[in-house]
Design a protein around this nucleic acid. Sequence first.
RNA 1: GGCGACGUAGCCAAGUUGGUUAAGGCAGGGGUCUGCAAAACCCCGAUCGCGGGUUCGAGUCCCGCCGUCGCCUCCA
Length: 467
Amino acid sequence: MTLRVYNTLTRKKETFETLEPGVVRMYVCGPTVYDDAHIGHGMSAVVFDTIRRYLEYKGYKVRHVMNFTDVDDKIINRARETGQDPFKLAAHYIDRFQEHMRDLNILVPTVMPRVSNTIEEILDMVQTLIDKGYAYESEGDVYFRVRKDEDYGKLSRRKIEHAVSSARERFGDELKEDEADFALWKAQKAPDEPAWSSPWGLGRPGWHIECSAMARRYLGETIDIHGGGNDLVFPHHENEIAQSESCNGAPLARYWLHNGMLQLRGEKMSKSLGNMVTIEEFLAEHEADVFRLLILSSHYRKPLAYDDEVVEQAKRGLDRLHSALRPAGGDLVEGQAVETLAQACATARERFEQAMDDDFNTAAALGHLYDLVKAINTARDAGVGGEPFRQAQQTLVELCHVLGLRMEREEAAGISDAAPFVQLLVDVRQELRAIKQWALADLIRDRLSELGVVLEDSREGTTWRWR
RNA sequence: GGCGACGUAGCCAAGUUGGUUAAGGCAGGGGUCUGCAAAACCCCGAUCGCGGGUUCGAGUCCCGCCGUCGCCUCCA
């Protein structure tokens, strides 16, 4: 089966073919580290982690690079405000970010470069751009000559008149040949600003050049996938294309993938708007799988409205997935019910792959997993057990893992310190039920329920779990 | 103002290169099972923002309108 992906550059779904057979070179823009990451960053990380996991499921070897922007005006400003060293500040938030990624079950990227470790490559590219006439020095700054790049604007479909550079570069308007030009290198303005020596004096890289340099250094001149949030399309990715392609004379990326924004109360969640929920805050209340399911329940390119209700729905949906992992009741290993289950497994896997092959349609893929859940539960009711039942559960877990869901809840209940005491109460209640002391038995069940322990009676006995 | 996306049952959401009964989940109602309950299983809901048009046939294409959101400021 062939994978098709939506390419922002062409605004179409295209057949996915890698430059080198079997290998995917993927670069995803990481965070500027001056504050704690919020769940919008988490969404982007989950989206591209899921894409990576599926590519690996399909047999590709994925070389995944995610950068940390650790040299930036925001970091400098925050460091000034708090009286810290900007590098220490950045290092602190890099550590925090990596912790959060681990908590969210994000696979560790192959390389996680930092701007401060990529200066040489950046200087090399800036110099090449100057040599080729695409850039010019102006009082220690270096600017990219946008009008020299004939296809500038092709990613964001913007005309240069509308593409006047952002405030981040506008600081040097009077030094530019054209107001649309953007900075590749910024001269040091104050002694507390991080700076490196360069042919143009002390200074630091502009915002966009880092990604161009890192992508080239770790993945080569042309990569397969370049990803990030759709708020990066302009100016960030547009400028990356301008720099890299002018410098290297080769396309920067074959496929541009962008995730939609997470919204809170009708607005994009962002640090500057102040309407954010940090990853830490979310995980203090919910398990990581709830977050995954929440993100994966809609398509990655669409905006996602975040509120308490969708979180609750994701939680319930996860409960449902888990319902299929409860133990078998019977031991039937052949017959119609067994065959039906095996068929359901094959169908689920096939449809799961079809959905994921269609631009990573995780919502549809999940729908097919729920169908498998139903088939497994039906089989359990019909008495199916043993190897056939175990295999069906294994298929479900395997496909959940492709989506990055851990599905480890059951084990967590068993290792609780309270487990022996709960079991004791369950045993006592079982004795009461044997002598038909219903009132007392129900009282124990109700009180345990209030404490978050759910009892379920069946022919084989009573099982319990945390709610 | 410029560019772009979206609008499917109470909620989330798939489906949009036009064509059998519009996936799936959550919530709700009914039922089976159960001492009762829970869980599981079965059954029940939408004609697809509004108005036109193209077509034998449109949620799926075109035009207009309304609404929501994103980018054009730092941003995943």
